[in-house]
């Protein structure tokens, strides 16, 4: 089973929920945590895994053999991303714009294009107290997160309950991270920002046809509009975490809720049971 933990708005507590859920479940089940927030992966701060493997994630970008090239310009014409410019006696490739679709290589009439890998980041795998830990990490200065997320997701171990920590937002990296999940937990906070972005995130999971439910974090801080929204949309609220300086303090030190306040483990197990109930 794959459970993704998403939010729309950043900083609502996705990583807090994902890590504590993984830890609580790991006492009795085989668990994997996959950190797909590849721009800013933070789950490792809390679970402190020992990494045993690192793989570079690259996409194929065109390499022009100027000996064969006739400068016909076909590759530049077909590239949807403007990653190739052809001049009278020169071809320029802009690898950071290339999505690696492979069309230019396949369609070059002179077979003058081959592909070379361009590294965007890494996927690292390791272990944290029996939890299989996988994280993607985008390199500094690189733009394209989805290929790394895609690779990290390929590491899903079907023998385990996989918990996916999703990046904030609602665009392509989020879609890539949520896609293929059996269930999506949406973590929000009861503020106008939290609600606005929750509505967008619900739009994403509904478009992907994935069942979802809500976790409200920092309850008591703002207003009741998130609850009203969930009621009107019939989206269940499965867990409420109060605004509590002890929780904030643990978080600031990189300590999970499940370890710092073990009484919460019960609540996370209960959360998992409720998810299973909804999937039945």
């Amino acid at each position: 089973m794959i459970i993704s933990v998403a939010s729309g708005k950043g900083g609502t507590g996705k990583t807090l929920v994902a890590t504590s859920l993984a830890l609580s479940l790991s006492k009795n089940s085989k668990v994997q945590l996959i950190d797909c927030d590849v721009e800013e992966p933070n789950a490792h701060i809390f679970l402190k895994p020992t990494f045993t493997q690192q793989e570079i994630v690259s996409i194929p970008v065109p390499k022009i053999d100027e000996g064969r090239c006739t400068y016909c310009g076909k590759c530049a014409e077909i590239c949807a991303y403007n990653a190739i410019a052809v001049f009278q006696k020169k071809v320029l490739v802009f690898p950071e714009l290339c999505h690696g679709c492979g069309a230019c290589t396949y369609l070059c009439p002179e077979h003058a294009i081959s592909e070379e890998g361009r590294g965007l980041g890494v996927v690292e795998t390791g272990n944290s107290n029996g939890i299989k830990f996988t994280q993607g990490k985008l390199s500094i200065g690189e733009m394209m997160a989805p290929p790394i997320i895609r690779r990290a997701k390929e590491c899903v171990d079907p023998e385990r309950v996989a918990i996916v920590d999703v990046p904030p937002g609602t665009s392509c990296p989020v879609v890539e991270a949520i896609k293929g999940s059996d269930f999506c937990l949406l973590v929000t906070e009861p503020t106008p920002f939290g609600l606005n972005d929750l509505v967008l995130a619900v739009g994403v999971v509904r478009k992907l046809n994935i069942p979802c439910a809500i976790v409200i974090n920092r309850a008591g801080v703002g207003d009741k509009k998130v609850e009203e929204y969930c009621l009107s949309e019939s989206i269940p609220i499965l867990l409420t975490i109060p605004l509590d300086t002890r929780i904030a303090s643990l978080y600031s030190k990189g300590i999970t809720l499940a370890e710092g306040m073990p009484e919460w483990q019960e609540s996370f197990l209960d959360l998992f049971d409720k998810i299973k109930g909804l999937l039945r």
Binding site: E40, L138, K253
Partner: peptide, 27 residues
């Protein structure tokens, strides 16, 4: 936007200054 990828680079490139808001947590 949050993060360091595509929309962040698009927001940042050629700007005069970045004001970075952080919080005192390990994350």
């Amino acid at each position: 936007p949050p993060g360091i990828g595509c929309p962040v680079i698009s927001s940042l490139s050629g700007a005069d200054m970045a004001l970075l808001i952080t919080e005192p947590t390990l994350s």
